[in-house]
Design a protein around this nucleic acid. Sequence first.
RNA 1: GCGGGUGUAGCUCAGUGGUAGAGCAUCACGUUGCCAACGUGAUGGUCGUGGGUUCGAGUCCCAUCACCCGCUCCA
Length: 567
Amino acid sequence: MPARSIEQIRNLCKRRGFIFPGSAAYGGLGSFWDYGPLGVEMLHHIKRAWWRSTVYERNDMEGLDGAIITSRKVWQHSGHEATFSDPLVDCKKCRARHRADHLTSNVCPKCGSADLTPPRSFNLMFQSHVGPVTAEAGTAEELASRVYLRPETAQTIFMNFKHVQTSLRRKVPFGVAQIGKAFRNEITPGNFIFRTREFEQMEIEFFIKPPQFVKEGEKTDEQWHEEWISQRYNWWLGLGVDASRLRKRAQDKAELAHYAKATTDLEYLFPDFGWGEVEGVANRTDFDLSAHSRDVPDADLARLKLEKNADSTETFDYFDPEAKARYIPWVIEPSAGVTRAMLAFLCEAYHEELVKEPEAAEIEAIKTEIPAVIKNAQKKAKEARKDKPEPAASAAGPAKFDPEAIEAFCTALDEMAARLPASLLEIDNLLEEHPGAANLEPVKKLKPKVNKMAEDCVRVVLRLHPTLAPVKVAIFPLKKNAPEIVDIAHRVTKQLSPFMRVQYDDSAGIGRLYRRQDEIGTPFCITVDFETLENNTVTLRERDTMQQTRVKIDELKHLLMQRLHLA
RNA sequence: GCGGGUGUAGCUCAGUGGUAGAGCAUCACGUUGCCAACGUGAUGGUCGUGGGUUCGAGUCCCAUCACCCGCUCCA
């Protein structure tokens, strides 16, 4: 069972050095996060896996790394400046939100109240200025020096379409991949690293023939779109996401962005907030390249609802030597979030498992206690049903005791109790999370007992795909007071270090050392023991199965490189 | 931005106006022959921040910030 809540992931991330709150010493800065030693490893692995699959393993892709700070003109002509910045006012009384420039007076059109917030600019782009500027906002001088932190990496790919095409002598169809940071001043960030104001994208602009130039037997824009959707979908599955928690969802007409002919989102089923977009694959047509081009036929401008671009010095077209024609290519854009990917992979990998049989006597004690809890709960449910006409469940909030929830809770608890001890973790979770369990006194008494027992018998393990694991191998001496064993453990560490991230640890008993590594998803642990002294073999312990095999030290590197997909 | 909640040691939390606490974690020493062992000791907190009430504030009041939940928003 993957993570039950984002909170679990957030705690683990902080405790074990994946992700820390940003600017923490000064009280934190809303929704900015710093990636710790393990987080940065994982980010690198995600990005490398993406780059390998989209650039190295194809023959029709090139890479790019564009500047983050970009001319204001880029975003004027891409359409972002206009669509990203409305001055809005809120009515404090009825909470309706209106565009300030649509108001005819200082009165809310909905309820007539004059109690409005001052207009706030909802420009989602972070801006700055190049050079020393003292000019007042909005003046020609200020606008001339204004720059934006890119809100997506895509536009810098468009700006470089011709550079890449000519310098690498590419023929359409081909694509350009970019990984990099993007910034959006989101009104409502949240859900840990799911929506943040600073984030990282992995984007591809794949340039293809416009429909009218597609010949018999060549792929249409729709076919390319489909191909990329399935290509990208499979990438997620290949890195360990279960198909039951990953879906393709085609956006309907109303949802589509102004530039897109079609978009399919890849969504992951997160705990707490459910399906969330981790990647979008859009058919952007020739909108973007046309928008940045100087010479575009009027008919195309009209079709794309674009103004003529007098600022641009370029036309982003392509001479097709076969068709002997010049055209502005269409674009398929697979655009994934690095940080969202990390959250999805962590949620997917998080598991709590029973690894020890609980004490039979304690299980019996709980078994006898549960029927009493159920009986009491049912009594409460009955009382609550009687009280229902009371205003308990009114606008003030949900009732303290919801009879239906309580009954559902009782049914579930009864079923689980029959399956003890195997269901210990489920019961622990049920007592903690089920709405029907809230506020019940006997539950409050039972909870710590179950929780304690569960904690004693459980291990937390990140079943990360080996490619994504921040630490690949941990190396322990079985006994840290045996110098000859410690010595070999150090030597093995040194031997493997150039090829993979390894961790040497001798600061606890062997069991604890294993658990620590399980919690950060280390696929393999190596233990140097007394047998090593006799025959030069070590114990190789696997994270997922906890099984141990003996491996010759000489063969370790080769074996690990294979098992970790490094060779 | 609105409503509700939370904020005390690295983590989980206790502490209802009178000397800042526990468990876990971390570190050191000893012990330890494979899945969260044990002993001894140590480190660690201006109680989110700022103001106020009070002889005295972690505790009461005001403001502010951050996070969580729900709205709103999300080209």
